[in-house]
């Protein structure tokens, strides 16, 4: 898409795109190409000798039980965060859309956690659940439940899910609310005249009409769960205990920076790229479809 008439072309348009292109090439395309290339190489520990090994890194990777375990952890985490996030955000948005008085205030008070860095959210919740000083851990102790996410992998997963939801729910809430508010009032009124109560109206009218929004959010939430949660993991659990919270992005970092396994880390990067690209493609196909409506 472009304008029907254009300014005369000289050096100007090139100068205008140059800064963005320069940064894109230097910091995006070149490193991504490097990752692709390195994923095909094996380097010794001192970085002196490098060998081209085709897809050996990938073979090693997918034969590695810790990597497969990391996949499983990521899947569990993504499923929990996405389903809980979408579900609670939808309920809250529906409630906020139903009430008239104070809706605006509710909105403000629900969306502010979006501003909190995931890492900071993780620090707050880690503090709350800290076995010695955490008020929630203390509360749970009082009712006979022993909480220590530093030892219990399930509890560690619960902690990062809660921290992850902190930013996700406001985001989903805002989109669901916008979606609900864009449903024509006359549709809801027609359903009311047909005798449907608020819950029934929501289930039969609003929810189906929200399906494009829901699908969009599903993809965005998955991207978030896969890629934006590094700070949460690093601040709350460092992937532990016993790798029970080592999601894929955390493992790339661990193997690359701590383990100095260049080829393996690069191969993991390539796998991650494949995941982002497929999610992006899904998202764009959806947007294309939306345009046709």
């Amino acid at each position: 898409m472009e304008k029907r008439t254009q300014f005369p072309v000289g050096w100007l348009p090139y100068a205008l795109v140059a800064p963005q292109l320069a940064i894109t090439i230097v910091f995006f395309i070149w490193p991504a190409g490097q990752a692709l290339w390195q994923s095909l190489l094996v380097q010794d520990a001192f970085g002196i000798h490098t060998e081209f090994v085709w897809f050996e890194n990938f073979q090693v990777l997918f034969a590695d039980p810790t990597y497969l375990e990391s996949f499983r952890v990521t899947a569990v985490f993504a499923t929990l965060v996405t389903s809980l996030g979408l579900g609670s955000a939808l309920v809250l948005a529906a409630a906020c859309d139903h009430v008239i008085r104070g809706a605006r205030t509710y909105q403000t008070l629900i969306i502010w956690p979006y501003a909190v860095a995931p890492a900071i959210a993780a620090v707050l919740w880690t503090f709350m659940f800290n076995p010695t000083v955490g008020i929630l851990a203390y509360g749970l102790e009082q009712i006979g439940y022993h909480w220590n996410h530093q030892l219990n992998g399930g509890q560690a997963m619960a902690l990062i899910v809660i921290s992850g939801l902190f930013k996700l729910i406001p985001y989903d809430f805002l989109f669901f609310l916008a979606g609900l508010q864009s449903i024509p009032k006359s549709l809801i009124e027609a359903a009311a005249i047909d005798g449907a109560g608020p819950v029934k109206r929501f289930l039969t009218i609003s929810f189906p009409l929200l399906s494009p929004t829901s699908f969009f959010l599903l993809v965005v939430n998955l991207v978030y769960a896969f890629f934006d949660t590094f700070g949460i993991i690093d601040a709350a659990t460092q992937g532990g205990p016993f790798r029970s919270t080592t999601v894929l992005v955390y493992k790339v970092f661990q193997d690359g920076f701590k383990g100095l396994d260049l080829g393996g880390s690069a191969a993991q990067s390539v796998v991650l790229m494949a995941i982002v690209i497929s999610l992006t493609v899904v998202q764009f196909r959806y947007i294309e479809r939306k345009v046709q409506y």
Partner: peptide
């Protein structure tokens, strides 16, 4: 948007690709 110039679509796609390359997937390089 306001110019039609050679390589424009190529540049556009290069910028578009950055969507698919979050820092998490290209950490080391």
């Amino acid at each position: 948007v306001y110019f039609r110039f050679p390589l424009k679509n190529f540049f556009f796609w290069m910028i578009f690709i950055t969507l698919m390359l979050p820092v998490e997937v290209r950490i080391l390089p």
